[in-house]
Structure formats: structure tokens, C-alpha cells
Simulated assay, not measured.
Amino acid sequence: MEDVTYTKGIYTATATVRPANSGHYQGVVSLARDDGEEPENVLYEVEATSATATEALEEAKALAHRILGELEL
């Protein structure tokens, strides 16, 4: 499954999926900040797991949108 990337100013959020316990999947968002100095990365996890990778990616994409929406440039 392909990662999905969103950008807002100096921030880049990458939504992806990783396997979780019991055959479920968890959505994950990596937030990178690149302001010309050393890049800063923060990892966010979707709290709930999903039965399919597609559902987990949709949850990760929604989380990425929420994170970027809360940022002030």
C-alpha cells in the first residue's frame, strides 16, 4: 500500500499503515518539519486498529489532515 503525503508550509505529513496484533492494521503519521535547519520528525499513531489496511490508511489520512489543520505557520 502506497504512503500518502500532504504538505503545509514547512511541514510534511506522511500517512502510512503498519501491521498490528491479530492480523489488524494501524495507521501512522510521520510529521516532518524542515525549516532549513536540522529536520524534526514526530510520529503519531491512530489509537484504534483496523481490520483492513485500506481502513487503517483512511484513518491515518484523517489524522494527517487534523494535525496539519491545527498547525499555525
Rank of each mutant, 00 (worst) to 15 (best):
M1C: 10
V4S: 04
V4K: 10
V4R: 12
T5N: 00
Y6L: 15
T7Y: 00
K8L: 13
G9W: 11
G9R: 11
G9S: 12
Y11G: 01
T12F: 04
A13C: 02
A15D: 03
A15I: 13
A15Y: 08
T16N: 03
T16A: 09
T16G: 00
T16L: 00
R18M: 15
R18H: 09
P19N: 00
P19Q: 11
S22C: 13
H24I: 12
H24S: 03
Y25Q: 02
Q26Y: 03
Q26D: 02
S30Y: 11
A32V: 11
D35K: 05
D35F: 14
D35L: 10
G36R: 08
G36N: 08
E37Y: 09
E37W: 10
E38V: 09
P39M: 03
E40K: 15
N41M: 06
N41C: 05
V42D: 13
L43K: 05
Y44C: 05
Y44F: 11
Y44H: 10
V46I: 02
E47K: 10
S50P: 11
A53L: 01
T54L: 08
E55Q: 02
A56W: 03
E59C: 07
E59A: 06
E59G: 01
A60C: 06
A60I: 13
A60N: 04
K61N: 02
L63M: 12
L68Q: 07
L68F: 07
L68P: 07
G69Y: 12
E70W: 14
E72R: 15
E72Q: 15
L73F: 14
L73P: 14
